[in-house]
């Protein structure tokens, strides 16, 4: 159902309590917290947050489960599912049992999920909300190439900048050189510059295969740490395509 894409990991240390017990923000509050306020209970905000760093797909599922499990607590009644469509490139937060609510984003969550519209109390109540733009936590690619693994024993530890962010890349691992191709659409370049998908731990999906890359599963996904990222480069003369070279490190043990 999906083509080549990069998915990021959102760092989280918890606390993993849900509902009213969870505090509004956590330490290292980046994008790991999602909350809802239900129309029937406008004074209660229910927060969801995983206790460990979580992959994009799993994060959406984890939020849905956490927010749903808060029922019935403090009158909260809704069941939720958060989904992402690769065709429209939009995140949808929906109540599966028709409860009217409003999502609350914490930290940079709105940009991460692509909800750039106004979500303040003036936005009203609905049973389903869809992001106004493409999320930054996942980047759709035209394609990517993964070179075979090299021994990473001589990889240099580097600190590199991308846009505003500064990240640390390391490796004592196998190293893959990965080149990605994208369409030159506004969202894409913005997404990449936001940094989530080109720093730290990321997962590259080549296509629909949801199993890991190996010599016998060449279409599988590659999960690793970004050691280095070049800037965006134009590909070809049409300027329709952009490319970027990344160095990814993966663990030695199978």
């Amino acid at each position: 159902m999906a083509g080549a894409r990069i998915q990021s990991y959102a760092y989280s240390e918890g606390p993993s309590a849900v509902g009213a017990a969870a505090p509004a923000t956590a330490k290292y509050q980046g994008v790991q917290t999602l909350a809802v306020i239900e129309q029937a209970y406008p004074a209660d905000t229910t927060y969801a947050r995983p206790s460990t760093a979580t992959l994009w797909d799993d994060l959406l599922v984890s939020w849905g489960v956490s927010l749903s499990s808060a029922y019935p607590m403090g009158g909260h009644a809704g069941h939720y599912a958060i989904t992402y469509s690769t065709t429209t490139q939009r995140v949808t937060i929906a109540s599966t049992n028709g409860v009217a609510f409003r999502p609350v984003m914490v930290g940079q969550g709105n940009v991460y999920l692509g909800f750039t519209q106004d979500l303040s109390s003036a936005a009203g109540w609905a049973t389903t909300w869809t992001g106004a733009s493409a999320p930054r936590g996942v980047v759709e690619l035209v394609g990517l190439t993964v070179k075979p693994a090299e021994d990473g024993a001589k990889v240099t530890l580097t600190r590199y900048r991308h846009g505003r962010g500064v990240a640390t890349g390391w490796g004592n691992t196998y190293v893959h050189h990965v080149t990605i191709w994208m369409r030159a659409e506004d969202g894409i370049t913005g997404n990449l510059n936001k940094g989530w998908c080109v720093t730290g731990r990321v997962r590259f999906y080549q296509g629909a295969t949801l199993t890991a890359y190996s010599p016998t599963n060449l279409a599988g996904y590659l999960d690793g740490y970004v050691v280095n990222a070049s800037g965006l480069k134009a590909y070809g003369t049409s300027e329709d395509f952009l490319t970027m070279d990344l160095t990814i490190a993966t663990g030695r043990t199978p």
Partner: peptide, 17 residues
């Protein structure tokens, strides 16, 4: 002090985290 991948700092007061 921590800086998130998109370049934002966290914590209400600089000393928090």
């Amino acid at each position: 002090a921590p800086v998130s991948p998109d370049g934002h700092t966290t914590g209400a007061v600089l000393t928090d985290e």
